[in-house]
Amino acid sequence: MTSAQRGRKGMAFGVGRLLAGAFMLVIWISASATGMLPGPTEVLVYLASMRPEELFAQVLKTLYNSITGFSLSFLISMALGLISHKSNLIMGFSEALSEIFNSTSALVWSLVLVAVMGVLSPLPPILVVAAVTLPHVLTATVSALSSADPGLLEAIRAVGAKPSDEFFEVILPSSVPLLVSASRVGLGTALRISVVAEAFGSSGGVGYMIIRSYNLADASGVLAWSVVLIALVLGLDQLILKPIERRAKRWLE
């Protein structure tokens, strides 16, 4: 593909994205015209009236819950993935664990963990995120770690590589693009899930603010905090995760 063709493709892609945004805005404006929802102007006014320190505190709380929960699931996945690589028993255990966790909804995890740990415990949102993202991250990790090219492993063995060199020089680098892509999807999921968990058992976070506004019949508040969540997910993805993914895959281009 020439650079001009790439430029045209990129331009069309960008226009498509703008159109999707405009489409959602039109639906929102149409719905607000019927009186069902507050319109974008009311929500903007609500957002402008928020105290910045409160906004940051709630956003940080949600980010903390999501990133901590996701990191926990990533660490468990890496550990299981590495042992699965050597043991069929652990491979079977990981697969079954993944299937069980995948069949359990975020709502069930939230209710059970809040019931066990209490509404005021900071742990349920973190653990719900870890439990819900674990099957996806675990599946991606196991498949990434076993996707190393045997030809490359043989080639470095032929020049004297030890098993630890095989891991650090071939197995880990060849899994990085898959792991980074999985992490990008996983972190987005983590943010959305943490909000559900916060709504059930937390004293802060974007999810807590959404449910609090709902309980106060404050529709503008519900939408304003929802907009904050969408901006957070998109900002994290586009400004941080996507550039990291591009960098991790640069040798593939």
Partner: peptide
């Protein structure tokens, strides 16, 4: 012994 494989088998990263 040194061997050069049919495919280059260079680490792409």
């Amino acid at each position: 012994v040194g061997i050069v494989f049919q495919e280059d088998r260079l680490l792409p990263w």
